[in-house]
Design a protein around this nucleic acid. Sequence first.
DNA 1: CTTTCGTCCTGACTGC
DNA 2: TGCAGTCAGGACGAAA
Length: 273
Amino acid sequence: MPELPEVETVKQAITPVLAGQRISHVRVTRKDLRWPLPENLADKLQGRICDTPYRRAKYILIPLEGEQTLLLHLGMSGAIRLYDSQPEFGKHDHFSIAVETGKWCVFSDPRRFGHIDLIANHQLNAHKLLSHLGPEPFSNHLSPGWLVKQLTGRKTTIKAALMDQRLIAGLGNIYVCEALFKAGISPRSLAHNIGQKRAERLIPAIQDILSKAIASGGTSLRDHVQPGGEIGYFVQQLNVYGRAGQACVDCETKIQMITQTGRSSFFCPHCQR
DNA sequence: CTTTCGTCCTGACTGC
DNA sequence: TGCAGTCAGGACGAAA
């Protein structure tokens, strides 16, 4: 259920469990999720020491001793749960690892749009899922001038442009809707019509929405990283997403829902121009 | 080249 | 209560 803040939250939760720890058990119950998993994945991971996990876009990357990195992608419905000891596995718990402390890290994904891969470090930058990604939303790369330049000549809407991982990596439908609301920009605005003024609102809006979501994700998480507890996503403080027909928090105009490139967009037709 | 559309899959929810 | 239909936070690859 993951956009960048949820993935970041999961990464933060698994870090103290995995960093510096040797993998003692691996359980793989499918040969594929969205794509075929690496052959003999369990054997390849068994006994390896994990380095500190990090995040790129919506991917969790766990460097392993031996110049390889484990990539986890949660897709649409993926979640990771942590346990203090071996749990009872559920039907969608496709991939689990234990470390020598006895703790288990369980990857669950009902829709199986997620993916797991094991990548040689020198091939990371060329990997199919990573090579095309744009800068992180908090990268120094992002400036209003940079954004305006990137949007020049784009004939699509700002909504579709922000959903494109090649422009800025890690945004998804919810936070694009929320950032556009915060910036007062209609999702229907054409990308090439976003000038310096609106770009100067949009970039801080994106960063503000994401950092607040990460902070609140972290808060809810602390209570939930208990034995059997779930690391997941907690809806809160959404101003437009999922609020079609309800009053705008600023002007009380009814929030509208439209479909753009196959995805729902929520916005306030009065506040967002 | 850029952009949109179909697709992978299960489960939760709505309305008849 | 049952069942068909709809929708979902992602992202590739084909097609336009």
